[in-house]
Design a protein around this nucleic acid. Structure first.
Lengths: 196, 196, 196, 196
DNA sequence: AGCTAACCGAGACGGTACGTCCGGTCTTTGT
DNA sequence: ACAAAGACCGGACGTACCGTCTCGGTTAGCT
């Protein structure tokens, strides 16, 4: 998220050192205790250099995460439920492991910073929503999901629970509970049986 | 979340002034810009007095919100879907209105602070989950929900979407979308029609 | 040169530590390399505490010097010329010794800072001019100086040379030269002999 | 004060632009607020170019002043006292006018920088001392000054007062006071009348 | 006339210190 | 006796300049 200076003259070594330092320090002491000061020191870089290219510590961490975590293809073993289970497990691990406090830290910060929120959504989340929907569309073609299922609703029902639990610290579902959740979420797209 | 001093000798007027100031300032400048310093000044209170009774700005704001928002009974008009719609709309308003930035601020802070997270869950959230489940149980008795429906799953499916959208700034559902969501969530508890 | 806070509540230990640190550091590294940052560190004091009571590093050093160097009586052995020699030698030592770089540093800074210049004049210089003039007045009573001699002119002629040499780094007079200078300066007040 | 690069290939336009910018900015904002950064920007020149040819901001300003103020002949109307008055008035104007803050700034900086002090003395001051002494020697030949008068002492007595007053901000002499000062200074070289 | 070394503009960089803000603790003072 | 008022240490903030360092692009003077 560069601001104004000439990106062509940017020092790639400094950029890498900054992003690496940000992730390391976040893992070591937690996102909350991360400071620009410490990142600069660890990276052997002037604070000015950080402020030249990023507008806040959140922006640095977002870049660092984005840089690290290339968008992976959605798992596809043929079984939609199994693939959702696999992928949700990965997400839960990411949100839960202490060394990835950067991710929840970023989520927390974005809740209070519109600009950061925008970048978080567009750069990290949107692409992953896209691959998720592609996987669902394939499932529709294969008859594992109703052809008229609203994929946005599916997104809400399948991923919503994880973030609801995250936000209120209700504990993440164990594999068994996760299977139950997925099962219910998918059943929501079965044709209605009766009026309610 | 008092710490140690004798609560009997506590000055109620100061307590009220502090909680009021915290909410006012949060509404005026946003939770992120809220400082203990400013609360003390606005409340006409020494910083010491704040630190005597609370451990962090999050704790103050939690108290303030708790104090303000008594646990309301879950709406009950007889129609489960309609009541869910009503209550979810209230939640969305709360999470969305700028003057209630204290709530999302608290959520954000709790993501990074285990102790605050614990208090947030136990004091604000748990009681509301309880009333929600009571309402569902009544619906089961009335036949609006399968008697064997797992109420924890219902909680996840019904409230999850809101927080998923909050966390990634995906936009809150409009009333129409909300109705669709509730409809799908409830359908997840219909008896299965076929093997999947 | 306090700004606004309540001087009654001032911490004397901090004040002393700051002034001592300023003089020490000035002697060690030179006034030019003196920083508020280093003074705070050496004094074990928050930078805020320094800025609370002083407006600039010059103001701190002025206080430190003022605190250290009480106004001494002008030497008085009965011989005006000898006493001037004694006192001028002391001034030259002060302006010359490396460990007193604080004094010339202050002079330099005052050349660029009107407020500091004002304080330097009123607090350090003016009182010493007063004692100097008193000594001259005594010499007048004793017949060592013409009774109608203009004491401001005498001040200029006697002290001027030192500062002229200081400012342009022309080298301070050795004791012999100093005697010659004083002799000439005093002779300027002899009654005129002839028209010029 | 060139350092090492080949002076033959030097860009005269850049040199002029830098010196002009230095004087302009010094006049506009004061020597103290002058920065190499700003000079480079105003002159449309790279900072590197400045550092290539000068060692400090003081060196730049010294060059600028030297460039501007060619050494003028000492005034010579036949009356020594009148000529001294004329020339001292010019010096006082130079040291007093706000737009010439560069001069006092340079003096201030030289008080803290031996190398700059050396250059200031040798390039600006020494030549002017030389012309001053020449004027005095002529006065000696004409019988306006004792033939055995020590010209260094005369320099001290005549110019000293101005710098004493500059350094301690005692106010410059008005024309009347200046005449008195010169009169006394010259009288110091009259033959002694009596033992003192 | 062409080559090449240098100077040049631009400006990113590692640093140092700035002056400010706020967190939490401790002290003084008035009521 | 209690708090209010607020001074205090500490530490991070974001900024300003420092002086150094590439970059390409002129430009000058020697082949």
């Amino acid at each position: 998220m560069p601001a104004s200076p000439n990106p062509l003259r940017r020092n790639e070594a400094s950029r890498r050192a900054i992003l690496d330092a940000a992730l390391q320090l976040s893992a070591e002491h937690g996102y909350g205790r991360l400071t620009i000061e410490a990142v600069a020191a660890r990276a052997g870089v002037s604070k000015k250099t950080i402020y030249r290219w990023w507008s806040s510590k959140g922006a640095v961490v977002l870049d660092a995460i984005d840089d690290m975590a290339a968008v992976a293809d959605y798992p596809d073993t043929g079984s939609l439920a199994a693939d959702l289970h696999t992928q949700l497990t990965a997400v839960i691990d990411l949100l839960t492991s202490p060394e990835n406090s950067a991710v929840t830290g970023l989520i927390a910060e974005a809740l209070q910073d519109r600009e950061l929120a925008h970048d978080l959504r567009e750069r990290l989340i949107r692409p992953r929503i896209t691959t998720f929907k592609s996987r669902l569309r394939k499932a529709q073609l294969e008859g594992q999901l109703a052809p008229d299922a609203d994929l946005d609703v599916a997104l809400d029902l399948i991923y919503g629970p994880v973030y609801h639990r995250l936000v209120f610290h209700l504990g993440m579902p164990d594999p068994q509970q996760l299977e139950t959740l997925i099962d219910h979420a998918l059943r929501a797209f079965d044709p209605p049986q009766s009026t309610r």
